[in-house]
Amino acid sequence: MATFLGINLFGLFGQLLVGLINGSFYALLSLGLAIIFGLLKIINFAQGAMYMLGAFAAWMVLNYLGINYWLALIVVPLAVGAVGILMERLLIRPIAQEDHLYSLLLTFGIALMLQGTFTHVFGSSGMAYAIPEALQGGFKLPFMYLPAYRAWIVVASILVCGATWWMIEKTRLGAYLRAGTENAQLMQAFGINVPLMVTLTFGFGVGLAGFAGVMAAPVYSVSPDMGSNLLIIVFAIVVIGGMGSIGGAILTGLGMGVVEGLTKYFYPEASSTVIFLVMVIVLLIKPAGLFGKEA
């Protein structure tokens, strides 16, 4: 067994990988939250439920329609995004002028309904989703065994996060979005269809959660409460990072996953709480968050 300074490298790298995988999901979810928050100034409490919906949708289209993983990776995020668009148009839009706390409560109610529905239909024990054939097996590296699907999660998530970052920071469309974040009314005056932009942004943010759900289906069991557990951690990560920057949301998500993985190796008892403790420290030192802009 490879050891270095008394540390079991196999174990350490294994936990680091698990941490990176968790971090990929944190990054995807907090990125979606940050994009939605930027333009709508609301927190989507149903983001975790949308992630759960994505995982269940992947399971359902495979078992009912025979649509495989790769196709689901495209179809499901679009479908979940469409659900988000409906949600925004039918439920969130009517109370957009009210206090933002109401939209938080609204999305919380939606999350409860979705989670309750899936618990009722599928039970709470969870379903298995097979790893696609092309990604079964793994690579034997000198210091660890790297399962192919797990490597794929990290690579694909970083690609999607990176593409989203590029789109928002470097393209014309992204410039509109950033301008809308600064001053939506002025954008409207310049002839940009802001209501449409808001709807599509919400759909995109929610679609990211759906994408994360499909990615998660083969590694975690597909269960109704998979989203709510994850979302609370993601909230802590959003507080740590601050929602001011897109890149910050991605980096904090991945970073916190790694921190969690390291904790699992060195002090497993604290692994479920370490992210919350980091949040406490950040609140004490830099309340606005690591990448936060507001005072």
Binding site: I42, I43, H100, L101, L104, I232, I233, F235, A236, V238, V239, E269, S272, T273, F276, L277, M279, V280, L283, L284, P287
Partner: peptide, 28 residues
Amino acid sequence: KLAVRREGIYFAMVTLALAQLAFFFYLQ
């Protein structure tokens, strides 16, 4: 003391996360 350092929806998220911290504490 920790939560009042943030406002609005951040306050809601901070309190939720702190509550989850306590939940895991009581679980263990």
